[in-house]
């Protein structure tokens, strides 16, 4: 018989009475008054966590379009009116919910994937290979991490704004800055890279890329070198080691880095709001912003609530599924960075 696992009492009799003989945790080794006290604290925390969630969920299930005059935290009715309205006509602009969703998914998945694919070889080189200027180049990659996205927005705006497709005449199309319309004619603007999802995606990659390199390098540093050394003895060259040993080993972290990118860019707001001007390119996050604050005096709160739930759900699902890996991935990255 071993000593009881976590009694705090010095009294041997109390200790004996509280002894846990089952080997499993049960309520027996916690005195009732402590159990009750801890339960009250835990329930109070539970209530504080649930307060905004219940509030917004209740609001989203309400069919009332007037603003709430008293506090309701438990749904009195389950009405999907607000959800239906949001799905049918999310904003005053001629844009469907599916388009908004598509834009959000394209941007967040696209940027997440692009950053990952471009970053992975660089992360490997920084983690494993020896070469001249390694330190200098590494610092160079990490420097942009210190610059917030707003800080790069003006030059990126100007850069992307230069690439425009113009319809000069019916048959002639000019792609600026490579070709221009004849005789200095202005032509009709068909496509402006800055004002497109592709352009915004490129601008978002500017900050996503250094983060992906940093995060992946932090993880690759933790993979033991023995496997690679064994592969090298067996005659594998660097390319083979990278593709056949390192990539399969790093798969979980590649997934985590991708999903971190996805989560971060799902709610991207700064760049999209600065660059995009056409409602057809708007994202869910932009729509949600339009439904709050100064622009939203006419938006019923039940619709806002339904939209908030809809925007939150995909991220919540991803997070719950990958919770352990995401938290682990974040902390290994930051420790070893």
């Amino acid at each position: 018989m071993e000593a009881p696992k976590s009694t705090t009492s010095k009294n041997p009799i109390v200790r004996f009475l509280n002894m846990n003989t089952s080997g499993q945790t049960s309520g027996r080794n916690l005195p009732l008054w402590r159990q009750l006290l801890l339960q009250i604290i835990s329930l109070a925390i539970l209530a504080s966590v649930m307060f905004p969630i219940m509030y917004i969920v209740t609001l989203s299930f309400s069919s009332k379009t007037t603003r709430p005059s008293s506090l309701e935290l438990i749904p009195k009715e389950i009405s999907f009116v607000a959800y239906k309205q949001v799905l049918d006509k999310p904003t005053g602009n001629p844009v469907t919910f599916i388009e908004l969703l598509k834009n959000s998914v394209l941007l967040s998945v696209g940027v997440g994937l692009a950053a990952l694919l471009i970053a992975v070889t660089a992360a490997y080189a920084f983690s494993r290979l020896k070469f001249k200027m390694r330190e200098v180049l590494m610092i160079l990659v990490f420097i942009p991490l210190l610059m917030p996205a707003v800080g790069l927005s003006t030059p990126l705006y100007l850069l992307l704004n230069q690439i425009q497709v113009k319809q000069c005449t019916k048959e002639v199309v000019a792609i600026q800055p490579f070709t221009t319309c004849e005789g200095g004619a202005k032509g009709k603007l068909v496509f402006n890279l800055r004002d497109s999802l592709l352009g915004v995606g490129i601008a978002m990659t500017a900050t996503a890329l250094p983060f992906a390199v940093w995060n992946l390098k932090g993880y690759l540093d933790t993979i033991p070198k023995e496997l690679e050394e064994a592969a090298a003895i067996d005659g594998a060259d660097t390319n083979q080691t990278f593709w056949q040993i390192v990539i399969p080993l790093a798969m979980p972290q590649l997934a985590v880095t991708f999903f971190l990118g996805f989560i971060g860019h799902w709610q991207e707001f700064v760049t999209t709001w600065l660059f995009l001007s056409q409602p057809k390119d708007y994202t869910l996050a932009m729509t949600l912003y339009n439904m709050t604050g100064q622009y939203a005096n006419s938006v019923p709160w039940n619709r806002f609530a339904a939209m908030a739930v809809i925007v939150a759900l995909p991220v919540a699902v991803v997070y719950v599924g990958l919770q352990k890996q995401i938290v682990g991935g974040l902390t290994t990255g930051s420790v070893k960075g």
């Binding site: 471009i118 970053a119 070889t121 660089a122 490997y124 080189a125 920084f126 290979l129 020896k130 070469f131 390694r134 180049l137 160079l140 990659v141 420097i143 942009p144 610059m147 800080g151 790069l152 003006t154 030059p155 990126l156 100007l158 850069l159 490129i202 601008a203 990659t205 500017a206 900050t207 890329l209 250094p210 390199v213 660097t238 390319n239 990278f242």
Partner: peptide, 26 residues
Amino acid sequence: ISLPYLYLLPAFLIMGIITFYPLIYQ
């Protein structure tokens, strides 16, 4: 000798245009 730089090339090429150029411009 050149392999490590080859591994770095994609990231640096792209960052050169969309990260370093804007930084210097700024």
